[in-house]
Amino acid sequence: MRLIRVCAAALAAALVPLPALAGFPERPLTIIVPAGAGGGGDTTMRFLARELEAVLKQPITIVNQGQGGGVVGLTSLKNAKPDGYTVGLLFPYAGYKASGAADFTLADFTPIANFNGDSSALLVGQNSPFKDLKTALDAIKADPAAYKVHCSGGCGSVWDIPVAGMMLDYGIDVGKVNWIPGQGAANGLTELAAGGVDFQTASLPEAAALTGAGRVRALGVLSPEPVAGFESVPTTKQAIGVAIDGGTWRALGGPAKMSPEAARVWEAAMKQAVESAAFREAMAKAKFGVKWLDTAEVTALMKKHEADTDRVMKALGRAGSN
Rank of each mutant, 00 (worst) to 15 (best):
I60R: 07
V177P: 02
S259I: 10
N79M: 12
A286F: 01
T295C: 00
G84Q: 02
K304D: 11
T211C: 04
A8Y: 03
E297A: 15
M1E: 10
M167I: 11
V6L: 12
T211P: 01
A300N: 10
A194H: 03
T44R: 02
W266V: 07
C7D: 01
G84R: 02
V158N: 13
A194Q: 09
V6Q: 11
A164L: 11
Q238S: 11
H150N: 12
G188P: 08
A193R: 02
A101F: 09
T43M: 07
R280A: 07
G39P: 11
D310R: 09
D118M: 08
A13S: 06
V63K: 13
L74C: 08
F47H: 14
I161G: 04
G165A: 11
Q183I: 06
A277M: 08
V265G: 07
A142S: 14
G156C: 09
K303H: 04
T61V: 05
A268M: 09
R27G: 07
D198E: 12
G320A: 05
A239P: 10
G175M: 11
D143P: 04
D173S: 11
A315H: 04
I161K: 13
T211K: 12
P129I: 03
P162Q: 11
G165Q: 13
E306T: 09
G220L: 09
A193P: 04
P144N: 08
I31M: 13
F104L: 03
G253S: 12
L77G: 02
D169V: 03
P226N: 02
V221F: 00
K78H: 04
T105W: 08
T190M: 14
F91E: 00
E225N: 03
R311P: 01
A101S: 12
V298W: 00
K271H: 15
N79H: 13
L122A: 06
N178T: 12
V298E: 00
D169T: 05
V71A: 05
N127E: 13
L48A: 10
R311V: 15
G156D: 03
T299P: 04
P255V: 11
P17E: 07
K134G: 09
D245F: 06
G229N: 05
A121C: 08
T75D: 10
A284F: 02
A54C: 06
L293F: 10
V233M: 00
L123P: 05
Y147T: 07
T236E: 03
Y93A: 07
